[in-house]
Design a protein around this nucleic acid. Structure first.
Lengths: 116, 116
DNA sequence: CATAGCACTACGCTTAATATAGTATGCGCT
DNA sequence: AGCGCATACTATATTAAGCGTAGTGCTATG
């Protein structure tokens, strides 16, 4: 109970404030998915698959599920004919525009050599 | 040799301009490393290890190597006593400040619930 | 001379991502 | 009715990325 007797825990540093964000956008394909969804009002699974160029469907599926759970992406079943699914950004998702803009600018300025 | 005879390649979409950037900052710990290096003029390996909290040294080592190859991080051997190594951002690396700022802001606005 | 700190590397293991194939549903054509 | 095609995935097996733990070589410092 003594205040002076503390378990000597690992030295605690102030947490990195971007860690929770890094946990999301640090996953493969996340930035690209958001980039394309920002560009259009909504997209289908296959369309995203084509645009991302070589993502595997399991990965895309789980990434979209994660983004949905994070409240960034909205999944909508369209019951028209033919019925299909549409993915779009939520309000929260659209606030990533600043991030995407900064990344795009940096990419274009410093990494353009890789764009063929 | 006929111009009209083209191998029908996969439908080519315009490449995602953030892809090269995503390849770098989409790797685990990259954003956090840059975040901390932006905050101080230079840091040591162990210091980064502590601040990142639980990164494994192999991963940190390879990430720093990658960032060095990308021209984002500079590795400096200090021959003082005791000799040691310092990591700092290059000019190119410091241009990531806009990205980090945008991510930090988004993280603070939308993800603060996870920061304990 | 033992101990501690720094900057890593090495090892084996787990998780993430991949390629490829397959499933379920519905539509249009014949 | 049967076939092929499209959409939106899931399943399986393999490879790559990241992890925990331990250990190395070096230099101080007590």
């Amino acid at each position: 109970m003594s205040m002076s007797l503390q378990i000597d825990a690992a030295p605690t540093f102030p947490l990195c404030p971007i860690e929770p964000a890094a946990h999301i956008i640090g996953q493969k394909w996340t930035l690209q998915i958001v980039y394309f969804l920002l560009d259009s009002t909504s997209m289908r699974f296959c369309e995203l698959q084509d645009r991302l160029g070589g993502v595997n469907p399991s990965t895309l599926s789980s990434r979209l599920k994660m983004l949905e759970e994070e409240g960034i992406v909205r999944r909508t079943q369209i019951s028209a004919i033919p019925p299909h699914v549409e993915y779009s950004l939520t309000e929260k998702g659209r606030t990533l525009e600043d991030v995407i803009r900064a990344v795009t600018q940096w990419s274009n300025t410093w990494l353009c050599g890789r764009c063929s």
